[in-house]
């Protein structure tokens, strides 16, 4: 998958084994996220906040191979605030077996209005 060599096998739910599907690209994964009860994702801010907004339990797996690894900053900060779990490829299994989704704190979405207010004030527009 991606640039890797491993290709999963698609399967339907049979004999108690879970259904398995995959795709390499989707312009919008919102529907997949909505139907999920657990999301395991890379550390991109788009994926993280899209999942948190839906209130789904989330495990972020940080790619340690990236050179300038500022991406882990966000995942670690949000994990510290108990909004998600942050794992490394080696610790993912342990994270899944130890996790308690009930202990996660729902993320309160941010608000851009205070930024807009400061911009208005700076430019001399009356405030809302």
């Amino acid at each position: 998958m991606g640039r890797g060599l491993y290709i999963p096998t698609k399967s339907t739910a049979e004999n108690g084994s879970p259904a398995l599907d995959y795709f390499t690209y989707s312009s919008s994964i919102a529907d997949y996220l909505k139907s999920a009860s657990l999301v395991i994702s890379h550390a991109g801010s788009g994926s993280i906040f899209e999942t948190l907004r839906l209130g789904k339990p989330l495990i972020v797996v940080v790619n340690e191979d990236l050179m300038d690894n500022h991406q882990s900053e966000l995942a670690e900060e949000l994990a510290e605030r108990k909004h998600l779990y942050c794992a490394r490829p080696q610790t993912l299994y342990k994270t899944i077996s130890d996790m308690d989704p009930g202990s996660l704190v729902p993320y309160q979405p941010g608000d851009a209005k205070p930024v807009a207010e400061l911009i208005y004030r700076y430019l001399g527009f009356p405030e809302d």
Binding site: S45, G46, A112, A116, I119, D128
Partner: peptide, 16 residues
């Protein structure tokens, strides 16, 4: 790209 644009749009949505 990606996350940057999402953040900018969130700001644009509240700007008059």
């Amino acid at each position: 790209s990606g996350g940057h644009t999402a953040e900018m749009l969130n700001l644009l949505y509240v700007l008059q």
